[in-house]
Design a binder for these strands. Structure first.
Length: 484
RNA sequence: CGGGGCGUAGCUCAGCCAGGUUAGAGUGCUCGGUUCGGGACCGAGAGGUCGGAAGUUCAAAUCUUCUCGCCCCGACCA
């Protein structure tokens, strides 16, 4: 094998693919998505990674606006007293606080906490804007950075400062708020599946896994290439917990003071890491066309200025048409060897590569190569715009299908704790079991397999179903999986 | 904070166990030339407080002690 004789980084990635976290970090850094920062636990997102994030971000922002929400800006510093008003919330987050204690060289009377999330700030601010049922629903969103003192960090997946969107809404009725929770979770499902080609399971989190201060939490759970689960977006129902804690009231239709029902939901730059881990392979990244910063890369192959200008002339009408079609194209005119460029753009996950050299031009064709399977085919130059548009759509669908097949192949249904333990002792993936919902079962499975509950699946069980863990009557099906 | 491992060139590392001239390799970088359809080759060059401190010794990258930093596994989590 010629590849194995060369000590290039592709081989290193291949070697490391047995060690998935190592592979992941290597690819994220070498594809220039992000890097570690001088500040421990934080990361620098580089332009290529940010462009990828922006494509996800913009799709989600459009969806958020289309569902009636407006973007706000709120401060990052939250007085400690704000956080202390909701007991369960502060208890859940206190160990993650990063706190500002000094200002202007003097110690502050009250510490300011760098927001780990903004429920308390929103409740404190919005109580001034919500007076009447006519002010509801109050549908806010913000794009910001938040701070959590994580013990172990990983690029994109868990850093002490990260970028996300957090939506906060207040509603007149519980039913309306619960509908909001479901609507926004479905937005996340669409972003994951329709844009990132990453199938997700949706459902409620268990009591033990829910957001601190929520009545219940829902999430989307994706499966990574090593069979582990990644929580990729969450949507929480608070009931009137936060309204009561902050004495946030409105005058209802019957002229009585009422507490609004609130929700919050968030999706973060973790999505970028999820895309890397859900689609990457031994050659590096593989990006779904809809979010790829570069959808088509052209690698011209030339040895002289004459050949170069011939390629330029031949490509000009095609590039103009692709530009009009809003297809993101880059032409790599760098003067390095073609093989180097092929590998580099594969590492960066560009879905389609066009190789154009004298041999192609002589036949009036270009060579179209798909990143997904490296298939090469000759396409007449005039057919390119249509061919590319069609290929991009097919690749997007094929990537979702492949990820779906992978998940199905690594998902089992079992009915006993023994079978559950057997599964996690020699394989990876999701296990679905009937469950009674008790925290003791959750603790026991976690202790014996290190797997945790991911989501509780909606849908009805046969009436005589029993919990796989303890044998008591089962209430629902639950997904177990190991997690990042 | 528990359990492992690692700090030597920009990057990846060898050398350490059994101390001994001027500390090495690959890759990257710079210059020149030949090349160019899957990571080319030849030649020249730049680049090092061997993480830090103390100790043992005629002599320390190598042995001892302390210390600082990083990575992996666990606890915590978008």
């Amino acid at each position: 094998m010629a590849d194995e004789e060369k000590p290039g980084f592709v081989d290193k990635i291949r070697k490391q693919s047995e060690d998935f976290p190592g592979w992941y970090t290597d690819v994220v850094r070498k594809a220039q998505l992000a890097d570690y920062s001088p500040v421990k636990g934080c990361m620098v997102i580089r332009p290529y990674g940010y462009a990828l994030w922006e494509n996800i971000r913009n799709a989600l922002d459009d969806m958020i606006k289309q569902t009636g929400h407006e973007n706000w800006y709120f401060p990052a510093l939250i007085p400690l007293s704000f956080l202390q008003k909701e007991a369960e919330h502060v208890e859940g987050f206190a160990h993650e606080f990063q706190t500002v204690t000094h200002g202007g060289g003097k110690e502050l009377d009250e510490p300011l906490v760098l927001r780990p999330t903004s429920e308390t700030m929103l409740a404190s601010v919005l109580r001034d804007y919500i007076q009447s049922y006519r002010d509801l629903p109050m549908l806010t969103n913000q794009w910001n950075n938040v701070f959590r003192w994580e013990l172990r960090t990983r690029l994109f997946l868990r850093t002490r400062e990260f970028l996300w969107q957090e939506g906060h809404t207040f509603h007149e009725t519980a039913a309306e708020a619960e509908q909001e929770v479901a609507t926004m979770l479905d937005c996340y499902r669409q972003i994951a599946e329709d844009w990132c080609a990453m199938p997700v399971l949706t459902g409620r989190k268990s009591e033990g896994e829910k957001f601190a201060g929520a009545q219940y939490s829902t999430s989307i759970e994706a499966m990574m290439k090593d069979g582990k689960a990644l929580q990729s977006g969450t949507s929480h129902y608070f009931g009137d917990n936060f309204s009561r804690a902050y004495d946030l009231t409105f005058t209802g239709r019957s002229n009585a003071l009422e507490y609004p029902y609130s929700t919050s939901w968030g999706m973060s730059t973790r999505m970028v890491g999820a895309v890397v881990m859900a689609h990457g392979d031994e050659a590096g990244l593989q990006l779904p066309p809809k979010i790829a910063p570069i959808q088509v890369v052209v690698v011209p192959i030339f040895r002289s200025d004459t050949e170069r200008s011939q390629i330029e002339t031949a490509l000009e009408p095609v590039l103009n048409q692709l530009d009009r079609d809003d297809i993101r194209v880059k032409v790599d005119w760098r003067d390095s060897r073609p093989g180097f460029k092929f590998n580099e753009w594969e590492l960066k996950g560009v879905p389609i590569r066009l190789e154009v050299g004298p041999r192609d031009l002589a036949r009036g064709e270009v060579t179209l190569v798909q990143r997904q399977d490296r298939t090469k085919e000759a396409v007449p130059i005039g057919d390119l715009p249509l061919a590319i548009a069609a290929r991009l759509g097919k690749i997007q669908a094929a990537m979702l299908a492949a990820a779906m097949d992978f998940r199905e192949a690594h998902t089992s249904r079992v009915a006993t704790l023994e079978a559950l333990k057997r599964f996690f002792s020699d394989s990876v993936g999701f296990v679905i079991t009937p469950w009674c919902g008790s925290p003791e079962d959750e603790a026991r499975v976690k202790h014996e397999t290190t797997a945790t509950t991911r989501v509780i699946l909606a849908g009805s069980l046969p009436g005589d179903s029993v919990c796989a863990i303890c044998g008591r009557p089962a209430k629902s099906e639950v997904v177990w999986g190991k997690s990042y």
